[in-house]
Write a protein that binds this DNA or RNA. Structure first.
Lengths: 249, 249
DNA sequence: ATTTCGATCTCGTTT
DNA sequence: AAACGAGGTCGAAAT
């Protein structure tokens, strides 16, 4: 297919509605070569093989092909794509048995997604200009910042000494000492936590206890907005503590 | 905006290229009322407030509005949307200061995503017909099936007794006994595992030990394709075992 | 390249 | 509604 004159003139999106399969193949192929973001809507089957394997029978779906290799297959419900291929893949498209096959492949791990589109209802190609990146507030990093600025929020007399303290069990979130000079390990979570975080904290406390003198007392404190019932039991069982605190004031 | 005659005739997607903001507002509003899947491409800013809070400065992005309330904002890279709103939200669109504002709101938790589109390059609405669901192979459920069919894969003489065994720490993946009649707890993972899975297994073994007689010996076995170094250390430290096995033969 | 852990994790299941 | 764990988790930082 030769370049559509209407496309050459404009700088905006290129669009085809109800193209034939050969038209769609030429359109998508050219758009991928140009490094555009490509979207398609139509009836297709989808096959995945790699870390697992999956089959998706014929239905209408929305496909998105990103220039970084991402391939997303969306239905009309759910936040997550029904099928996908991660960034780093190579997109290829071809015609096979009168259908448009779009295949995205990557290595390490070896995996492959193939969408076979029998009816293309719509195709579009966008050249994306986006320099901005998202500015987020309310993460665990914000909780850490809040504690370092106001250590008294954890408890009267708490003094942070390090946020990079390495242990054989990994790096602890915040390492410091209390008013009596006892070692304190903080495990931070931005939201309500379950038993997993208690396990993590326990590993840090144990590893740090072995790292220091045998007679050293190490306190473990979980800092989060709240804890579940099971996590509370585990905390008591392990002699660990909890301080309620949110990432934002 | 009155219904475009070309739209009424066709059953396929409805499309607008380079609409004015009022045209786009009417188009999106009608499509949302119809329960269509709506996509837009254009220059916008995005604001989120809820579980956290974020700002995204002006740039070109792809928006997807699903009839279930999902709102996805994609850039030209990355598998994940740069901003989003989960299913269960209500979409609303309006004009504000010559821009198209699309806001998706939900409660429990209270959160809100608003995209302010200053230039609409493309808008489309699709009525999705998709009955099929994905058929996946290679999950943890497949690994469990494989073990129940061939318990000898775990070890000679292993006998599964239950896959629903409840403990105070939750339900164990597989509960059984070895050739000597000792209780065995299996924790299954479909892929290479880190320290978290060891912690999980340890909780089950501990809970089951307390549940049974005080003198009962409970073996804990992690079944997965492989383990990381730190997980291996933890296994040894806790007296737990590892059996290499993949979900698929 | 691998390991580790956070995430506005999402999603399903069960209580 | 809350809790709990899986996920083809993804993504980023550290090693």
């Amino acid at each position: 297919m030769s370049e559509n004159p209407a496309d050459a003139e404009r700088s905006g999106p290129r669009v085809r509605t109800d193209p034939t399969v050969p038209e769609a193949e030429a359109f998508v192929s050219a758009a991928l070569d140009r490094g555009s973001l490509v979207t398609l809507f139509g009836r297709c089957t989808v096959e995945y093989d790699g870390r697992a394997a999956s089959e998706l029978e014929s239905g209408e779906r929305h496909l998105m092909l990103k220039p970084d290799g991402t391939h997303l297959v969306h239905t009309d419900s759910g936040q997550q794509p029904v099928n996908w291929q991660p960034p780093g893949s190579d997109h290829e498209c071809r015609i096979e048995s009168d259908a448009l096959v779009i295949e995205s492949v990557r290595t390490a791990p070896d995996e492959r997604l193939a969408a076979t589109v029998t009816d293309v209802a719509h195709a579009a190609a966008f050249d994306v200009d986006d320099e901005a990146s998202v500015d987020l507030v309310g993460s665990e990093a914000d909780l850490k910042r809040r504690i370092l600025e106001s250590p008294g929020l954890v408890e009267e007399g708490f003094t942070p000494l390090s946020t990079e303290r390495e242990t054989p069990a990994g790096a602890v979130d915040v390492y410091g000492e209390d008013a009596e000079g006892r070692t304190v390990v903080l495990e931070l979570k931005r939201r309500r936590v379950g038993p997993d975080a208690v396990g993590q904290l326990k590993r840090y406390v144990g590893a740090l206890g072995r790292d220091l003198h045998a007679d050293a007392e190490v306190r473990g404190v979980l800092v989060a907005p709240s804890v579940t019932g099971r996590a509370e039991e585990l905390l008591a069982e392990e002699g660990l503590e909890f301080v309620p605190l949110t990432p934002t004031g």
